[in-house]
Amino acid sequence: MSARDLFTFHNRHFRSGVGITAAILIVTAIAGFIVLPFAQPWVQFANVWDAICSAAGVPQRAANVAAPEQTRRLSEVVLTSHTLSRPSQEAIGRGATLAQRCAICHGPTGISRADSPNLAGQYAAVIYKELHDFRSGARTNAVMSPFAVNLTDQEIADLSNYYAYLPRLPAYHPTPQLPKPNIVIYGAPMRGIAPCGSCHGALDNKTGSPWLEGQSEAYMKAQLQAFASGERRNDISQQMRNIARAMTPQEIEQAAAYYASQPPDVVKAVD
């Protein structure tokens, strides 16, 4: 008894085993690659080969339909794991010098007194993305855009590292901390809204999402409304626009008020 006795067509088990398996494979292949594709009257195939390629999932060039023209610029920021890693002291220092021109709105210590975002201790990736978007025009603001338009890549990285380096100070107008509203911790699953906290902190953080604790309530409300109306559109894959559109005005109020009332030192140190 050896493999030679088994792997031969003289052995009936080999004959039937291989034969039945091959027969099933051939029958299912004919059904799956030829019969069933043609059984779909709503799909047209040029020939049998075309049907087989389609059923096999051969990557095909899409039909000659021009992609819709983008009337507005989209965010083009690319962030790799090396973009902002390990800033040097020198880079932070350069960022500090550059940041003097930001101080008028964002405050000399990165804490705003003008309902602009507090930048002290904000994630570097967030500042990096927003500055890029302001520069490219993916995000526009009458006051901010002119500041960003002439920044170089290096300057944007330096500024991001500088602000990320600053300590998170308490917000300027601390209010009593509010309890977590549903929209922040549960979201609204039936309307497809993920909890705010699953990207913006409190539960978890996603790269590119800012922490929001202690930010200006008026600013956050304005941004949510801008996302909802489509006025702001630098969110990738419309993720914030889809959420903001589905939020009720009351939920927008609650989320903004909740985050504004939180001290920034509760932000989870994850970096």
Binding site: A29, G32, S54
Partner: peptide, 29 residues
């Protein structure tokens, strides 16, 4: 031993990167 293995794509029926023909074969097996 023979047929437990080549059938896993019935877990990817909802996946666009797999051709429908292969999904059918896996379904049959």
């Amino acid at each position: 031993l023979v047929v437990a293995m080549p059938i896993g794509m019935h877990h990817t029926f909802g996946d666009p990167q797999v051709g429908a023909g292969f999904k059918f074969i896996h379904s049959a097996f």
